[in-house]
Design a protein around this nucleic acid. Structure first.
Lengths: 234, 234
DNA sequence: CGCGGTTTTGAATTCAATCAATGACAGTGG
DNA sequence: CCACTGTCATTGATTGAATTCAAAACCGCG
């Protein structure tokens, strides 16, 4: 699976994506409350955030989408995480050298706080501590579930699992859901070739597992068999 | 890759494994300091820890190895995380229903703290907050690097990446390093068949990338080509 | 020593990557 | 307005790799 012949350009002009309304609210009020203690910054689509995340810090996505990617020496790209509104953000000191970040949507907004400020705040606001740890755990959970998806036996299962978890994370007030990422992104996230992603999607459609409205409009046909979902069946 | 025809029994009697001596020290003193505020519990090899982790809580591994696994409906197993001494531990509320935990070595010791106690402690000990968050971020980093490994193009690269990260995490005071997990475990962690793991290891040995002393004794031959390591090259 | 589990190897099949090409769509400039 | 261009998406044919089925070699242990 050589994947470096792709254009790496971004389509899809998503903005205002929300993962979990309740959590989103909590985050916003927290962000307001912390005020000057943290820094908030907007990004345009395709804009690189590396500089902003240079120093070890913690943060969260307020709106839009942030991709965390690794570029191999031969130019291949792998997406290790896709963060949407409400998702936590922690930087290991040496992450800066191996990973890079960029916004995948216009109107992406990120908040961050330095270690020092966090420690200072922890004294006055003990609940902030718990909030941060819980957010981190949510991220851990998301990553582990992705590992489950990526470890699936066939490519069709991988794609199905990916679409399923995406559909879960996106606001589902209106069907179909609008996929925020391109096939190239999906391929790089799950570790298969673009063509395989496309074939898998066609296959899922043929089997009636999903329904497409244009390349980006997705409806999961949650039959009983699927309700058990993934995780639950490989 | 059907993987449920394996015996699921554990060999390898590892104990006293340490990941990062400095961090290990920090953890131990923290654990002592917190005293009765947290609970510490030993596990035998192959012992299930599900009950202990039932309620949403945070914790860390003091010694030994803990596997976090998911069993699919058809009996297939997938290992989503392997935690060694010093590794953090956070439970999403609904993790309990989808994942299960068990010790992979005798003498495994785990510490945990409840959300309430954590919040109470955060007020009196602000540094604890930062410590927890940083620990969580380290776990996030580990998982993301695993996703990188698991997303590699060929099975040989997956196995090489896995062995490399394992070798890094294990105490390397003496060579060869003793691999804590079986080929079955490696297969279930990386998402390939056992036979493929075996073939990949043989291939790596033939190419001089690694050296084996018995099935469990591993030395990485870190040639220049390899020094760039993974992440760095797919 | 023989037994259960692990590790390795072999041969046949299935599946995904690759190479190559076409179709769909948006934005651009004549 | 329409051809032009670049990216994204899909499909087909072929090659290469991993899974599967089967069986042998190995190891620790009672």
């Amino acid at each position: 699976m050589e994947m470096n012949r792709r254009p790496h350009a971004i389509s899809g002009e998503q903005n205002g994506l929300r993962a979990d309304p309740a959590r989103q609210q909590e985050l916003l009020s927290l962000t307001r409350e912390l005020g000057t203690e943290l820094s908030v910054r907007p990004f345009r689509r395709s804009e690189c955030c590396d500089g902003y995340f240079a120093s070890g810090a913690f943060g969260w996505v307020l709106a839009g989408i942030v991709r965390k990617t690794h570029i191999f020496e031969n130019g291949q790209r792998r997406i290790v995480d896709v963060m949407m509104a409400g998702d936590f953000f922690g930087l290991d000191p040496d992450d800066a050298s191996t990973f890079s970040f960029d916004a995948a949507a216009d109107g992406t907004v990120v908040a961050k706080i330095t270690s020092q400020k966090l420690e200072a705040l922890a004294a006055s606001r003990p609940s902030l501590c718990l909030f941060m740890v819980e957010s981190a755990c949510r991220t851990i959970s998301r990553l582990e579930r992705h590992i489950l998806v990526q470890g699936c036996t066939t490519s069709t299962k991988k794609v199905r699992g990916y679409l399923q978890s995406m559909a879960r994370r996106l606001p589902r007030d209106r069907t179909p859901v609008k996929l925020p990422l391109s096939r190239y992104d999906i391929a790089d996230h799950v570790g298969i070739a673009v063509e395989t992603v496309s074939r898998a999607i066609t296959e899922l459609q043929r089997r009636g597992v999903i329904e497409l409205e244009g390349p980006r409009g997705l409806s999961m046909r949650c039959s009983y068999e699927l309700a058990k979902g993934l995780p639950g069946e490989p």
